[in-house]
Amino acid sequence: MSMPTASDQMHEPGLSPELESRIGRIVGAVAAFLAVAGGLLLLFLVAMTVISITGRAFVGVFHFAPLNRLGPVPGDFEMVSAGCAVAVCAFLPWCQYRRGHVTVDVFITPLSGRWKAVLSLVGNVLMTVAAVLIAWRMQLGLADKLSYNETTMILEMPVWYGYAGAVVGLWVFALTSLYTVWRSINEIAAGREGP
């Protein structure tokens, strides 16, 4: 984080708000990109599952090649599990960026915008700590899976593939959370919360 410049302090109070909003646009774009990528992965799983169900329905229906080879997509369950894990982690940064996590607001409605922003700051700092912790631990888990050559049951796909995809999302989640801390600081300075 750079020191606030003179021009920043003249315009708006806070911690380099202009730089923050520029960085914020980049963070938002990266988060949105990951979320859409995760969503496309989800769509792929939908298509694969539908194909698998269809194939399974035709097991033993035809007795001539090549249709007698019809069957479920091998390892469809494994792909859904691993794919969802990766997709969920790709969704987390966007959720954090868009303030999507569930909170109970009823007890703080009387507070001013500034105090609400202070509470957001607390929440975002805690979220950053948690995100770093989760990402760090899962990365160690990834190292475990890498060294043990653990695979899935049917496809014999290395388990670390899923871990690796998920870890990427989690580190971006940690960085996004860190950015939201910065955003909260500036919202405190501005005395109001963002959208």
Binding site: V36, V88, F91, W94
Partner: peptide, 16 residues
């Protein structure tokens, strides 16, 4: 994109 982004927010929120 709208559908996927909205799904992303709800999914991440629930899984978290």
């Amino acid at each position: 994109k709208d559908c996927l982004l909205a799904t992303a927010v709800s999914t991440a929120m629930i899984y978290f």
